[in-house]
């Protein structure tokens, strides 16, 4: 990739992601509504919501909280840029983790008991999902010998063939990252929750919009991760992404919210079995292939 294409990729990511994520969320809401035998909102609804939130009054609850939110947005965007310019996968994961920590700190700074519990639960969700992200990077490394997104993207055979377990594990944690049932512990988009809106309870207007925006970037980035598994065949990749997203909506509509203990336990167990199992097997096969 030349410098210019990199800059172009970065600009495209920053500009197009919110629109794409908005459309995706709109589709998500329409499909959910149809599953609930409703008509549902217009396709552009999430974008209307976002723009409206920016027009609302700013209520300053806590200044440091807002600083942390900006950190959350900034580092999510940085992680995304690093990913889409074909940079180092490890930096992407670390930047993403840092962004989540900023978000949690922002909620802790807000000082309402609901946002505190939401923040604690968000930490648990990070604990549940982070190992899988790291395992994903390791999987790519073992399969391709590089952490560079460009190298991984340029593989001639799709990685899904060698890393199916890692892919399954990523789908599992995608449910956590998208805040879908049964994992919508720290906050939830629509369902009513015992901790009101959890981690986002205290943020109003533009600040909530920042959270939604960062969440949109994060969604696109995670879908990018999944795209890498099918990189040589873009059409198949697109079909796979659509299927995965539909699966997430289906899971959301067929599950109750579960306990954080259960979420932590099962996500660790599942990712350990499919992710680590896949890694070990791959490692063994590669050594067996070239003794």
């Amino acid at each position: 990739m030349s410098a210019w294409t990199r800059i172009l990729a970065a600009i495209l990511f920053v500009l197009l992601s919110p629109i794409l994520a908005g459309l995706l969320a709109g589709l998500d809401r329409i499909i959910s509504a149809r599953m609930q035998s409703r008509i549902g909102p217009p396709l552009l609804q999430p974008i209307y919501d976002l723009l409206k939130l920016f027009q609302k009054e700013r209520i300053a609850v806590n200044r440091s909280g807002h600083f942390f939110l900006l950190g959350y947005l900034l580092f999510t965007i940085l992680a995304g840029i690093e990913f889409f310019i074909g940079g180092d996968l490890l930096i992407v994961i670390f930047a993403l983790a840092l962004a989540s920590v900023f978000f949690v700190l922002g909620a802790f700074a807000a000082g309402s008991p609901y946002s505190h519990i939401g923040a604690e639960r968000e930490l648990i969700q990070i604990m549940a999902s982070e190992p899988m992200l790291i395992m994903c990077a390791m999987g790519f490394y073992v399969a391709t010998g590089s952490f560079q997104v460009t190298t991984i993207h340029a593989q001639p055979t799709p990685l899904i063939a060698t890393l199916p377990g890692i892919f399954l594990g990523m789908i599992y944690i995608l449910t956590i990252k998208l805040r879908k049932s049964p994992f919508d512990l720290s906050t939830s988009h629509h369902a009513h929750q015992e901790i009101v809106k959890g981690i986002t309870t205290e943020f109003a207007g533009p600040y909530l919009a920042i959270i939604e925006l960062a969440h949109g970037y994060e969604t696109i980035l995670l879908l990018g991760f999944l795209y890498l598994f099918f990189a040589p065949w873009p059409l198949l990749a697109l079909a796979a992404l659509i299927a995965v997203y539909f699966l997430e909506i289906l899971a959301d509509n067929t599950h109750a919210r579960l306990y954080w203990q259960w979420v932590l336990r099962t996500s660790w167990a599942f990712t350990a079995i499919v992710g680590a199992g896949n890694l070990i097997l791959l490692h063994y096969l590669q050594r067996g292939g070239t003794p």
């Binding site: 409703r38 008509i39 549902g40 909102p41 919501d49 209520i59 986002t200 943020f203």
Partner: peptide, 18 residues
């Protein structure tokens, strides 16, 4: 479902700040 105000973009937030 019968009335479905989400058609109009209405969400019941349950949180006064939103």
């Amino acid at each position: 479902p019968r009335y479905d105000v989400e058609r109009l973009g209405i969400i019941n937030t349950g949180n006064p700040k939103h």
